[in-house]
Design a protein around this nucleic acid. Structure first.
Lengths: 164, 164
DNA sequence: CAGCTGGCTTATGGTCGGCTGAGCCAGCTA
DNA sequence: TAGCTGGCTCAGCCGACCATAAGCCAGCTG
C-alpha cells in the first residue's frame, strides 16, 4: 500500500470487490468539468455579476461565457436576476446561490495547491480572514475537530451506497 | 455586492484595476483539467497502483489511461517505480508523490459537494478519521484556527503578485 | 431618429479528450 | 516452443471545448 493512499475498512475491503460507480466526485465533475466554468466561478466569488465582467476578467470569448453562464444557471450554481442601473434599461445579472457558494472550498483548495507547487514567488492573491486578518486555507477535519492527514483517513461505506 | 462574494481590500480595490492573470487556480487547472485525471487521482488515493487497476476501476480506456498516467508522472503528481511480484517479471507501478497527496483537499471538497448536492440518499463512500472514527470533511480555516465562511473572506495582494 | 452600448447569438473551424479495435512485446507457464 | 497475460501503442473516429468574426436587439443619449 502506498504511503499516500487511504486505508480501507469494513465493507469496502477488499478493494477489488467494489467500484466507485455513482461516485460523488464523478458527479460533481459532470457539473463543473471545464476550465471556463472554474474561471467563471472564480470571478463570481471575486464579485463579478455582469456578462461583460465575466468575459473581460476571464479572457473567455463571448459564446463560451454565454454557454457556461447558462449551464451554471441551469445547475442552480448561479441565479439570474434582473437589475437596473440609473438611466439604464433593465438587464440580467448573475449571482451565486448557496449551492454555488459551497464550491468555495474546492476553489480555495485548488488555488492553494497552485500557490504551493506552481508559483515561484508564492501566491499572487491571498485570502484573509476578515477582521482577524490571518491567512485562510482549506484543510481536512473530522467532526471531533481533529486535523486529518492522508495517512489517517479510512474509507467506509456511506448511506448512499448501492447494496447488491 | 452579492451576499456570496468575497470582500476586497487594499491594493485589490477597485476590482476593475486588476485581473487574475497568473492565477494559481488557472495554473492548477492547466495541470489537472480533465475528468480522466481526477478519476485516476481518486483511484490513486484509494490505493490503486497498477495500470490494470486504473483502467478497470475508472472505466477509462487503455489509451487515455496511459496518456494520463504519463502526464501525471511528468507533472510529478505520480511517480513510476519498478516492482516485481513473485513469479512475475518486473513491472512499473504508480504511486503518489507528496505533491500529488496535497491534492487531497481538492478531491475531498469536490466529493463532499457532490454528496451534498447531487446525491439522493447521501454519500456512497464516507471518509473517517482513523481511530476516532468521526466523519471527515474539507473546510476553510485561518491561521488563528477560526472557521471561515464566504462572507468573512477578504482578498489581498500576495508575495507573488505582479507589480506594474 | 441615428448612433452607441451591453448582452448576447450564429457560423465556422481548430484542437483536445475520449472511444473502439487492433496490434505489440516481455517474460512466465505448459 | 506455443500460448497467455500485463502493460502498453497505434489508427481512426466522434463530440466537446474554445476561438474569431459577424450580426442582432433593446433602449438610452445626442
Amino acid at each position: 500500500m502506498s504511503a499516500n493512499a487511504i486505508q480501507m475498512t469494513g465493507r469496502l475491503e477488499p478493494r477489488a470487490a467494489w467500484t466507485a460507480e455513482g461516485c460523488s466526485l464523478a458527479k460533481a465533475l459532470d457539473v463543473v468539468r471545464t476550465r471556463s466554468a472554474f474561471l467563471i466561478l472564480r470571478e463570481a466569488f471575486y464579485g463579478a455579476t455582469r456578462f461583460e465582467e465575466f468575459t473581460g476578467r476571464t479572457g473567455l470569448s463571448d459564446p463560451v461565457t454565454a454557454e457556461r453562464l447558462r449551464e451554471l444557471t441551469e445547475a442552480e450554481i448561479l441565479r439570474r436576476e434582473p437589475y437596473r442601473e440609473p438611466g439604464q434599461r433593465t438587464r440580467e445579472r448573475y449571482r451565486m446561490t448557496d449551492k454555488g457558494a459551497e464550491l468555495l472550498p474546492v476553489m480555495v483548495a485548488l488555488m492553494q495547491w497552485g500557490d504551493r507547487w506552481l508559483q515561484r514567488r508564492g501566491a499572487p492573491v491571498e485570502l484573509r480572514h476578515e477582521g482577524c486578518g490571518a491567512r485562510v486555507h482549506a484543510e481536512l477535519r473530522c467532526e471531533d475537530d481533529h486535523r486529518v492527514g492522508v495517512e489517517e483517513l479510512e474509507l467506509a461505506s456511506g448511506p448512499g451506497a448501492r447494496r447488491r
